[in-house]
Design a binder for these strands. Structure first.
Lengths: 335, 335
DNA sequence: TTGAAAGCGCTAACAT
DNA sequence: ATGTTAGCGCTTTCAA
């Protein structure tokens, strides 16, 4: 079954050598126009494509890039993936997506799996659980091209693409303050995530700039990125049971927001706090306690990250200085 | 850069032949226990994995399966993909996901791209735009294993996994009727999609069974599956501008629902119709005009489809009779 | 029990 | 301008 044609078949059919066929196919200049025509026409006729696996073996590369994210169902990541694909596709690369579901163990396995020579480079957004990143470091040391986006590893020297998390968090928190909130809580992602730190700083700065106090007990971290609902629910429950209930909540991510809202619906008797947070979902404006959202340029971030990765892959010489690209967020008010 | 170890390296290091190493690695019974131990230990020590590309070339298969869906951001598909991955991963297959964005052209390109020998089989859910399926037929004829799920092609003889679309549609429509709706509209997907036909039948049957009339002008098809918002918006606008406005709407899909709600919010002055429809999103219960939803067993569908595909791939002999598996939906009321 | 060698499909020196 | 050949990493007959 499914026995594809090879250049050997073409060579035989046309009474040429395989190398001539190969060269004609790739447009080698040493081949006479006439032969080239004959080969090309014939290849076209039988709808020939060369075996990418053989090509990979030969060239020691697979023309595919691996993408490691926590969850494809997350609007931010699905948009980023669209951006990645748009670039990859144009440059002739396959995109292999793998999900960690924010588990450290899955991240280790998936990166290894992808890296074991089936992929030319890796685009990674770290899993929430990951504290030890020896697995990444190892691949990086071995010379596998890696670009981080969104949830980056600051210590690893390569290209990184992030959004302005500080400013986004600042905007959202300031919005809540300007709306009159005096007691603004923060539902954060896992502590070890780069975005968590940056967003927390923006939150704190906005509080201070608006004459409010930073109270660490108002900050709840979700170590599993909201992967299990109990985590978010108990955080919200805690907050709503305080004597000084929050009148505003700054939520750090999309998945957290949904959990948040569900929990609030369940536990807030009466008025619910005002909510603002990072989200790339388009349903956010349709939600009952609506959420004003910090939208990240997900598609652009994906594009940029893919571009950079392919730059590294195709670069003849090791890249000297790696930059970190910071893209701006957009704040959208939903009353 | 990134020069991985080969069995040749191991052979040299251990003073054995490559064939001995190869056999030891795959546990060939002809190798002495001692040699096996030595090789295995060494391989373990240097963290050796054999080059999957060379393996692919040799075995004429890539241990990867391609998944073609319209959109990864769609909750139904992301859940189905999780199901697919859970099986594929266990059986040692990579999953390559590609999106058509419901475009016919992308579907043709992506299936070709995947099929050109880099993939051992294909899991497909048809794009909304596709009317001509010669591209699928061709691959099928060439012997490439294909399994359809959700949006299937009835004419192609292979395994198919769907949910009970008729019953799901029936349940949703009946729910609306029982709530007192007298004038129930239907926002449908593209006409040529298998699910469209089945769901429409369920909708019509429920109307009739509940003493309501079927009025074709109350059925609006979205040929691009809601890919462009105008499509859904104008459908809703049309419906709401009728002299006999619908008091209930049965929506055929998740993406359509969001568009629907947005449009309703914009165009319905005063009371909005009751809405029920197919959706696998968990936010649906949080939406302002809330949606009661028919949930498909997406994860299970993905699992089943992947299982069947791998069965075909690994089957020694051509499969005789292909079944179509129908899984039940679940109806969830959101007040 | 182990090794030598051919071959999967393709490319690229190196001939001619 | 075209052909011959070796080799990418691995498996597998065949021989020893």
């Amino acid at each position: 079954m499914f026995k594809p044609t090879t250049i050997k078949d073409i060579a035989k059919a046309l009474n040429l050598s395989t190398s001539t066929v190969s060269r004609a196919l790739r447009g080698g200049y040493e081949i006479s126009e006439e032969t080239k025509r004959i080969v090309l026409d014939y290849a076209e006729k039988i709808n020939f494509t060369r075996n990418p696996i053989a090509l990979s073996l030969k060239e020691r590369r697979s023309y595919s890039i691996g993408v490691v994210v926590c969850e494809v169902a997350n609007p931010f990541f699905s948009q980023a993936i669209n951006g990645i694909e748009s670039i990859a596709y144009n440059k002739g690369y396959h995109v292999i997506i793998s999900q960690t579901h924010d588990k450290y163990s899955r991240e280790v396995i998936n990166t290894e799996h992808l890296a074991n020579r089936s992929v030319d480079g890796l685009l990674i957004s770290m899993s929430a659980e990951t504290k030890d990143y020896a697995h990444i470091e190892k691949l990086h040391k071995q010379g596998l091209p890696i670009v981080f986006f969104d949830r980056i590893l600051k210590d690893i020297d390569t290209y990184k693409v992030i959004s302005n998390n500080f400013q986004g968090a600042y905007n959202a928190t300031e919005f809540l303050a300007k709306q009159g909130c005096k007691n603004i809580a923060h539902i954060a992602n896992a502590k070890q995530l780069s975005i968590t730190e940056d967003r927390k700083k923006g939150y704190e700065k906005a509080l201070l700039d608006n004459g409010l106090e930073v109270d660490d007990s108002m900050i709840k971290y979700c170590e599993h990125g909201g992967d299990n609902k109990e985590e978010v629910e108990s955080a919200i429950e805690d907050l709503l049971n305080r004597e000084n209930k929050p009148d505003g909540i700054f939520v750090a991510s999309d998945r957290l927001s949904i959990g948040c809202l569900t929990a609030i619906k369940k536990h807030s008797h009466g008025v619910s706090p005002l909510i603002a947070g990072f989200s790339n979902s388009d349903v956010v404006s349709l939600l009952k306690p609506s959420i004003s959202s910090v939208m990240q340029p997900a598609f652009e971030m994906g594009r940029k990250a893919a571009e950079l990765l392919i730059d590294i892959i195709e670069s003849k010489y090791p890249i000297e200085n790696f930059e970190t690209f910071v893209l701006e967020t957009e704040f959208k008010i939903n009353e």
